[in-house]
Amino acid sequence: MAIRDKMSANAAHVLQPGENIQAVFGAQTTSQYFALLSYWIIIFANAYRVVVVTDRRILICRSGRMRMTPVNEVLRELPRGTRIGPPSGLWWRCETLGERLYVHKRFHKDVNAADGVTAA
């Protein structure tokens, strides 16, 4: 099962009745570039987030410190019209979701897809 499918399946319990997921992607709270200084910074300071974009709202969910796919609780809820991107680079720093999050390049197409649905 692909990582996006796991995140979508794990996010089902935070959705309202009739709400549909349009995009889902992972992020983390600490830049991976800190690993150049010390790997312990990444281990103790990093936390994963799952961003669930639905047809009604954007949810930022806590995922934990070791794995990206679980969806434990909703930390923040934003209006659907919030523009997330545009992403760039290997680790894009996103500050539009209420906290500084770092999104890896493999999820950039999901960010673009979420913003594309908003624009349409």
Rank of each mutant, 00 (worst) to 15 (best):
L15S: 06
Q16W: 13
Q16M: 12
P17R: 08
P17T: 11
G18E: 09
G18C: 07
G18S: 08
E19F: 04
A23R: 05
V24R: 01
F25T: 04
F25K: 06
A27R: 06
Q28S: 11
Q28L: 04
Q28H: 13
T29E: 09
T30Q: 13
T30L: 14
Y33M: 09
Y33C: 08
Y33P: 02
Y33S: 11
F34H: 13
A35I: 12
A35Q: 14
A35C: 14
L36M: 14
L36N: 15
L36T: 12
S38D: 15
Y39W: 15
Y39A: 15
W40E: 15
W40F: 15
W40C: 13
I41K: 07
I43E: 11
I43M: 12
F44Q: 05
N46C: 13
N46P: 06
N46W: 07
A47Y: 12
A47I: 04
R49Q: 07
R49F: 01
V50P: 01
V50C: 05
V51C: 06
V52A: 00
V53F: 03
V53K: 07
V53D: 06
V53R: 08
T54I: 09
D55V: 04
D55A: 04
I58N: 00
I58M: 05
L59F: 05
L59R: 09
I60G: 01
I60F: 00
R62H: 07
S63F: 01
G64V: 08
R65M: 07
M66W: 11
M66A: 13
M66H: 06
M66T: 13
